[in-house]
Nucleic acid binder design. Structure first.
Lengths: 344, 344
DNA sequence: TTGAAAGCGCTAACAA
DNA sequence: TTGTTAGCGCTTTCAA
């Protein structure tokens, strides 16, 4: 019945029974705050105390409760990432490198999927902000006024990606889809192709590339590209079906720009099945330069986006801001490159 | 200078300045706990109060701080998932469905990547446990004794997946890799193939499938399958290079079992490049049945793993346990199926 | 270098 | 149905 017995209080709540910093401190014979310093800022503590605390931690198997720490310090060491989907595989490299960079600096990644209804998006934002992450990573830019307001009001550092916009919420690491559409069109024109088609998923950025692509053709007085919108079926099957559609409605097409490598692979596959030779009869270009598809035959001519660098840079920026540092160049045009291989 | 001015205390810490439940309660003219109930258990509150609180929330833009809530209630509404990598794409469906199911029930997903050094794994576990998630999802089973001890000691519900083991930490949703290896071998034998090869990535489960595969051959008195270990290059290129190796060292092989669909696609690609007809000259099988690769040509004969169901079921189990419910069948053999298409 | 006190924002327990 | 009180486990602030 000594002081360490706390079961005598009337309304006690008693936590989960897990080891707390208190227990460690008691075992080490120091105050809780000293144990805290031994864990977080070991050089503010004498070697003797440090050793005792470390021993106590090992003995008890103590794992600090980051929820409590986060609440007390208002630093959650959590970064939220919003990704439309992983299945298209264009975002994988980016998420993977983001996650790795964050982890290396002691941050955790919380993943949220967007791309559903606006209500879902709203709920997702609330769920994210409710966690008080130290930073938010967005795939794409936030258009919804409500969403922008919420993010702005939260005061949490935000990185938007995969696009350029004159009015980012905060930081921005992207590239110009219009420029891609334009340069791809020019590239194909330079190669001598004249009757183009576009196979694209139903997303706004693909739309932007398509529009710029068409504008170049228009300026050259060429026929408008025939467009197949595959909706959300960004698979090989989607690409195959789209090629069928192209052959039906515009059989004389000599070059196709697809909105993803996977769609391009599908188109190539279907072309093969129909005895259409790529690129001799039809040139096919992809988008994304997904690493594990690089070696298909014919090797994919595509637009390279450096997802890994985007993830890394975003992590750097968000962590800097989380630690109160300024980011000198918060708006970055990451650029892109056309990788010429064999399919166009 | 009335009661709402709190700046007169000496040692005040003042939080981030964000809207808190207190502010909402004050505005609505109720006690904080009442506002809390209006948010979390609205039917425990009178319609009148509910309305006033909701108005106050709208007016202030209040977003509850889940760190504080989690700390107070010891329920973080966070689930951690450990995935070796996303890049191989076998795990994508699973992660996506896990995340969706969790979000629909008000849980967030924290993503961690394993597959690096043991120290990394250790740090990852500490980072996860430190967040006090309500559940932990593991891709694969935890072999490390240290890891098992940590997880067990944490008392957090755990689901292991993608494998069966007689000694799961807690819950288990998997299937038998040995059985897959065996059934694939039998399947190929039934088709009349006799000179086999294995193309596999360097992971333990692929190893298990390979061993069972070889055992069947041995029992039949057939030649041992020629094995190419591609290490971590689970890409199309990896598959292509592996096929080259097979052709060099065992040119008479008539069937190949690959440890992933992507490797199989690579092998098919290389075969095409060399004028080897699939399946007439070589049969090629994959593993995973990745949805977006289903329509390659020749259509992939493969082993179907239902990743989406695995993710969904895991979410259901973890949420049930997080809410204190028991899971009746905590160990599930999800099975698999051999999907016969054209490549074998 | 160490510690005492206070409080981060919320909810459990109890009381009315 | 509503409120009071205490406390979740940690860190900030101030003091020694």
């Amino acid at each position: 019945m000594n002081e360490s017995d706390s079961s005598n209080s009337k309304r006690s709540r008693r936590g989960t029974g897990a080891i707390t910093l208190r227990d460690v401190a008691k075992l080490a014979g120091v105050a809780p705050i000293t144990a805290s310093r031994a864990v977080n800022t070991p050089d503010q503590v004498s070697p003797d105390v440090l050793k005792k605390v470390q021993e106590a931690i090992t003995k008890t198997g103590y794992v600090p409760n980051r929820m409590a720490g986060g609440l007390a310090s208002s630093r959650s060491r959590l970064i939220a990432a919003v990704v439309p989907t992983m299945l298209g595989s264009v975002f994988l490299e980016m998420v993977e490198s983001l996650n790795n960079a964050l982890f290396a600096s002691g941050y955790q990644l919380m993943l949220g999927q967007s791309g559903y209804s606006p209500e879902h998006e709203d709920a997702l934002l609330d769920a994210i902000i409710g966690r008080r992450p130290d930073g938010i990573f967005l795939t794409g830019v936030m258009h919804s006024g409500k969403g922008r307001t919420k993010l702005l009001a939260s005061g949490i550092p935000v990185v938007e990606t995969w696009d350029l916009t004159p009015t980012p919420i905060d930081m921005l690491i992207g590239f110009s889809h219009a420029k891609i559409g334009q340069e791809v069109a020019e590239f194909l024109l330079r190669k001598g192709y004249k009757r183009m088609a576009l196979i694209r998923a139903d997303d706004e950025r693909a739309e932007r590339r398509a529009r710029a692509f068409q504008e170049v053709l228009a300026k050259q007085g060429l026929r408008e590209a025939f467009v197949v919108n595959v909706g959300t079926s960004r698979s090989i099957l989607g690409g195959r079906e789209a090629l069928v559609s192209v052959m039906q409605h515009a059989p004389d097409v000599d070059a196709i720009f697809c909105s993803s490598d996977l769609l391009a692979l599908g188109a190539i596959t279907e072309a093969g099945a129909r005895g259409i030779r790529v690129p001799q009869q039809i040139a096919i270009m992809g988008f994304g330069d997904v690493p594990f598809l690089e070696s298909v035959i014919p090797a994919l001519t595509t637009v390279r986006i450096n997802g890994a660098e985007m993830g890394r840079t975003a992590a750097t920026y968000l962590i800097a801001r989380a630690q109160g540092q300024a980011v000198e160049q918060p708006i970055v045009d990451l650029g892109f490159s056309i990788v010429q291989r064999d399919s166009a």
